[in-house]
Amino acid sequence: MTTALQPPLPSHPVLRLRLAPQGGTPRRIDGAWWPRSYDLLAELPRLLAGLPRAWGNISSATVNGPMWSMPPGRMLVANQVVRLHRSLTAPAPHTIVLLAPGRGRWDLLVVPPDTTVEAAEPLMAAAAGVPA
């Protein structure tokens, strides 16, 4: 009798992030992020760890919408203090705005966590400006 070994599950889920290509004209949306929940304490460290180094140290994150669980006004991520904000009146309700002093601002479309793969992929591709 033989036993088939299952491959180990990843200890950290794969970051679901698609960014627009660098350069060119300025964009209103710089890409898309598909978190697994609306728990900002759990999701934000994974997002920040997966961003390009060129974006620098993110010091502020503003999420839009009442669905996000909001911890106190700041959190420590990889030895960096990140100030947290929530906006309920933003022009783009499903976004996260990331700021890095001296580097810039990036606006990402947030695909709701309960979105199916079939629906999420075209949204992410369109936000990144690439074919699905």
Rank of each mutant, 00 (worst) to 15 (best):
Thr3Phe: 10
Pro8Met: 04
Ile29Asp: 03
Ser69Asn: 13
Arg74Met: 01
Leu5Phe: 02
Ala54Leu: 04
Gly56Tyr: 01
Arg36Val: 00
Pro13Met: 14
Tyr38Gln: 14
Arg28Phe: 06
Trp55Ala: 00
Leu76Thr: 08
Ala42Asn: 05
Val81Asp: 09
Leu76Val: 10
Pro26Asp: 09
Gln80Glu: 12
Leu5His: 14
Thr2Cys: 02
Ala54Phe: 12
Pro35Lys: 05
Gln22Tyr: 15
Met70Thr: 01
Pro35Cys: 04
Gly31Ser: 05
Ala61Ser: 12
Leu47Trp: 15
Leu15His: 08
Pro45Arg: 03
Leu17Lys: 01
Arg74Asp: 11
Thr2Asn: 04
Pro10Gly: 05
Ala54Arg: 14
Arg53Tyr: 14
Gly24Glu: 04
Ser11Gly: 07
Arg74Ala: 13
Ala42Val: 06
Thr62Arg: 12
Trp68Glu: 05
Met70Arg: 07
Trp68Gly: 11
Gly24Gln: 00
Arg74Lys: 12
Val14Cys: 07
Thr3Asn: 10
Leu5Thr: 11
Pro26Ala: 15
Arg28Val: 10
Pro35Glu: 00
Pro35Asn: 10
Pro7Ser: 10
Ala78His: 13
Gly24Pro: 08
Trp33Leu: 01
Arg46Thr: 14
Val77Cys: 02
Ser60Leu: 03
Asn57Arg: 08
Trp34Lys: 08
Gly24Cys: 01
Leu41Met: 05
Trp34Val: 05
Pro10Lys: 03
Pro26Phe: 13
Pro45Asn: 01
Ala42Pro: 02
Leu17Gln: 12
Leu47Val: 00
